[in-house]
Simulated assay, not measured.
Amino acid sequence: MLFILIVFSIPVYGFCIWSLYEPEESFFLFDRWRFKEIPELSDIQIKLIKIGSVIAMILWTILIIDVAIDTFTPDPPLPPIPDELKVD
C-alpha cells in the first residue's frame, strides 16, 4: 500500500507544485477549450489556488506518514488460548 501511495504521490506533488507557480495555467487545465479569450483570474482566486495547493501537499504528506506508520507498526500478539479450548 505504501509503495502504491508513493507512486501516486509523484503526479500529486507535481501538479501541486505546478499550480503553486502557475496558478492560472493549472486553473484552466482541460477547460481552456471552453473560452475564446481566457478570462483573467482575480488576485483572490490566484491566492486561493496557491493556498489550496499548499494545503493539498500538507494533507498528502500527512497521509503518506500515516500509511508508513501503519505499514511498519508490528501487529499485536495474539491472545492466549484458554485451557478449556485446548486440544491435547
Results as ranks from 00 to 15, higher is better:
D75R: 13
V87P: 04
S26Q: 12
I69S: 06
T61G: 03
F15E: 12
I58C: 05
D75H: 15
V87C: 03
K36R: 11
F28V: 03
I81T: 00
S42C: 07
F30M: 08
F35W: 11
D83M: 06
I64D: 05
M1W: 12
I65C: 02
A68P: 06
P23Q: 04
L48I: 10
L41Q: 02
I4W: 14
I6A: 14
Y13M: 06
T73C: 07
C16Q: 09
T71M: 02
E84Q: 11
D75S: 13
D31K: 15
F28E: 04
S9F: 01
D70T: 09
F72E: 10
F15G: 12
S26A: 13
P23R: 00
M1F: 13
I46A: 05
M1D: 15
F72D: 07
S53F: 03
L41G: 06
L2Y: 00
F35C: 07
F28K: 02
I65W: 03
K50P: 09
K86H: 07
W18T: 10
A56V: 05
L85A: 02
A56R: 03
D66G: 15
D83Y: 09
F8C: 11
T71D: 04
E25D: 15
I64H: 01
L78K: 13
S53T: 05
G52F: 05
I81S: 01
D31W: 15
K47S: 14
I69P: 01
P79L: 13
L5Q: 00
V67Q: 04
V54M: 11
S9P: 01
F27R: 06
I4T: 15
L59C: 09
L41C: 08
P82A: 02
K50W: 12
I4E: 13
S53D: 04
I64A: 04
P77G: 03
I38N: 14
S19P: 10
P77N: 07
A56E: 06
I46C: 10
L48V: 02
F72V: 08
I62N: 04
F8T: 12
I49V: 02
D70F: 08
L63I: 09
I6T: 14
D66V: 12
K86Y: 06
V54E: 09
W33M: 15
L20P: 04
M57K: 06
F8L: 13
P80Y: 05
D43V: 15
I46G: 03
F35Y: 10
L48P: 08
I65L: 00
D88Y: 10
S42L: 08
L5T: 06
W60K: 10
R32I: 14
I51G: 10
R32Y: 13
I6S: 14
D75A: 15
D83S: 03
A68Q: 01
S26W: 11
S53C: 06
D83T: 07
V87N: 06
I64P: 05
I69K: 08
V87H: 02
L59T: 00
I62A: 00
S9E: 05
K47W: 14
I58Q: 09
T71Y: 01
A68R: 06
Y21F: 14
V7C: 09
M57R: 00
